[in-house]
């Protein structure tokens, strides 16, 4: 995908509606939602529980499809891709960081970071090299042989970010990445994400409840009941 210049639109949601039906009851999670995220920007999605924040990330990453409207990422109409195309596209363009249980528990930190690189044509040696480099960036080169259980929550989250980074994605989708962390670890993770935007030109869409997390973002989008309530730049 041709990389949009910093400031051009990277992610666009156009009149997106998402409805879940449970027990015969229709639940409108997103109601004709519009959202525009510029390349190389850091956007925080905030809002009460159940307002559809995770749903938005799933739509952007192609893990879910909208009932109405369209989702484009880097000019690609995500919901028009077949399941196989979608897998390949996702591997090449987006990376997820979740709140918790981000890592495969039976693999070491290094192996977890190397895992998505199996989808690339890189050689074994190149994969290891790249995984180590990514762990270096997040400051965990000395922990690469540890299993997730042997890491702190903050370290786990940094490994997850390293894994996202290793794929060199355009867009990073972070769902409450600091939700389980203490203040110091949370600040470390937020600082790291900020650096990825500033130094590596990534586009980050981050769901958060943390008011301080909002402060590192370029822009905060507040959601309520499936619509954008407030959209504005944060000082």
């Amino acid at each position: 995908m041709p990389r949009p210049e910093r400031g051009e639109t990277m992610v666009r949601l156009d009149g997106v509606t998402k409805i879940y039906t449970k027990g015969g009851v229709e639940l409108v999670v997103l109601d004709r939602l519009d959202l525009d995220v510029k390349a190389g920007s850091f956007v925080a999605l905030m809002g009460p529980s159940g307002s559809g924040k995770s749903t938005i990330l799933n739509l952007v990453g192609g893990l879910d499809i909208p009932d109405e409207g369209s989702v484009t990422v880097g000019g690609v109409d995500v919901d028009a891709l077949s399941p196989d195309e979608l897998s390949a596209w996702r591997a090449a363009n987006v990376a997820y960081v979740f709140q918790a249980f981000n890592l495969i528990p039976v693999l070491t930190a290094e192996e977890n970071v190397e895992l998505p690189l199996l989808l690339t044509p890189l050689s074994r040696a190149q994969r290891r090299e790249q995984a180590r480099f990514a762990l270096e960036i997040v400051g965990l080169a000395d922990r690469m042989d540890h299993r997730p259980k042997q890491l702190s929550g903050g370290q786990e989250q940094r490994v997850a970010i390293a894994r996202a980074l290793a794929m060199d994605p355009e867009v990073m989708l972070c769902d409450e990445p600091t939700g389980d962390l203490d203040r110091a670890s949370a600040d470390q993770v937020l600082g790291l994400l900020r650096r990825l935007v500033d130094e590596h030109g990534k586009t980050i869409l981050m769901v958060t409840h943390d008011p301080q997390a909002g402060e590192v973002a370029d822009r905060i989008v507040k959601l309520d009941k499936g619509t954008v309530l407030v959209e504005g730049a944060e000082a």
């Binding site: 196989d84 897998s87 591997a91 090449a92």
Partner: peptide, 14 residues
């Protein structure tokens, strides 16, 4: 289940 979800999110196919 969770690990399989992670694989999917990383771009591994079905």
């Amino acid at each position: 289940t969770r690990s399989m979800g992670i694989l999917g999110a990383l771009g591994f196919g079905r």
